[in-house]
């Protein structure tokens, strides 16, 4: 009886968004009189940090500090239409809508600045800190906050923007499967190391190391959060989770967290990742979606590592200790027969 170590790899692509029956999201933005901007959406934040990412995209586009952005979302009386938060679509679709709305609002601010400074819009630049200045003449500048206030109280104008992004519908050809199913693709490659206990069949995952290419990251810490949480979830899918332990029989389905097995802190492997950024052709600032894909490559990487460790190929999930022990028995018998 032994503890055998092995390494496995897996590489995956992942589609950003779907096309559904046409897949749109909208955003509305308006300036307050103090120069902060309210971004009104209808997308839900599942914990991945949608509000944060949208605030960053809005701030970047408007040229104001992040703290000047207020995100109000998911009230259908105020928020414009959005398909929902799924399919790794939100940063891409909603982000594109926010960027478009911010550009429109920015145009209104620039228009005002150009009138006050008596230069053309083309000669104005944003300093990214809430100021607009004439290119090459930093002393000729206006604060966006002041402009927003004067827009309301002096000029009677709105500083506002509307944005929409839609992935057009693509019908699937029922004969050939021809379709345009996504907007772009992100990539991952994972290397997993495991240790198989040949006495108990237990698999310890020692490390999950991955490279990701997810386009431009808006908030690298949040991307890392998806990668880490996904690595854990992938490990959990690979080795633990099932609602039907006796599938296809429905017996012994777990009803609680005690019965629905998932790894805890004591089972954690080393989780490490590097992230490459190759801007996508159609995401706001070149983003791709990273939300879903992070559980994917760890699963086959772990299963391949198990084979490398002990020679047992398990082709069904989850890979239970019982499956490993049966595989080891079969190997032993095969050897005995040969």
């Amino acid at each position: 009886m032994a503890r055998l170590r092995g390494t496995g790899i897996a590489a995956v692509n992942y589609p950003t968004g779907m096309n559904l029956g046409g897949d749109p999201s909208q955003a509305l933005i308006h300036a307050t009189t103090s120069g902060s901007f309210n971004v009104v959406l209808a997308a839900a934040d599942l914990g991945q940090g949608l509000r944060t990412v949208m605030a960053q995209i809005a701030a970047e586009t408007l040229g104001v500090p992040y703290g000047q952005i207020v995100i109000q979302t998911a009230d259908t009386d105020t928020g414009p239409h959005d398909m929902g938060t799924f399919a790794s679509r939100a940063t891409h679709r909603v982000g594109n809508a926010v960027k478009a709305a911010a550009i429109e609002a920015r145009e209104a601010v620039l228009q005002l600045a150009s009138e006050e400074l008596e230069v053309s819009i083309a000669d104005l630049v944003l300093d990214g800190r809430g100021g607009i200045q004439v290119a090459g003449s930093p002393q000729k500048r206006r604060d966006i906050a002041d402009l927003a206030s004067r827009a309301q109280f002096q000029y009677g104008r709105t500083i506002a923007g509307r944005g929409v992004y839609m992935k057009p519908k693509s019908d699937v050809d029922p004969e050939t499967g021809a379709m345009d199913p996504d907007s772009t693709q992100a990539y991952a490659c994972t290397v997993a190391e495991v240790e198989v206990d040949t006495e108990t069949g237990a698999v310890a995952v020692l490390s999950i190391r991955s490279a990701y290419e997810v386009g431009q990251q808006v908030n690298p810490a949040l991307v890392q959060g998806q990668i880490t949480g996904g690595a854990w979830m992938g490990m959990s899918h690979a080795l633990y989770e099932t609602t039907e332990p006796c599938y296809p029989s429905r017996d012994h389905s777990p009803k609680d967290f005690a019965g629905y097995l998932m790894p805890g802190m004591a089972e954690l492997p080393i989780i490490e990742a590097v992230v490459l950024e190759v801007p996508s052709s159609n995401g706001p600032y070149g983003v791709k979606g990273v939300g879903e894909m992070t559980a994917n490559s760890p699963i086959p990487a772990i299963v391949n590592a198990i084979y490398h460790a002990c020679g047992v190929r398990v082709d069904s999930l989850p890979v239970t200790p019982e499956a490993i022990l049966r595989g080891l028995d079969a190997l032993a018998q095969g050897k005995g027969a040969a």
Partner: peptide, 25 residues
């Protein structure tokens, strides 16, 4: 691709190269 879309924004090769570097392979 089999669904007839032409691959763009592809970085699988670069991603695998980065993973190999990360693990010292």
């Amino acid at each position: 691709k089999p669904h007839r879309k032409v691959t763009s924004d592809a970085t699988l090769i670069e991603t695998m190269q980065a993973a190999a570097r990360l693990v010292g392979h």
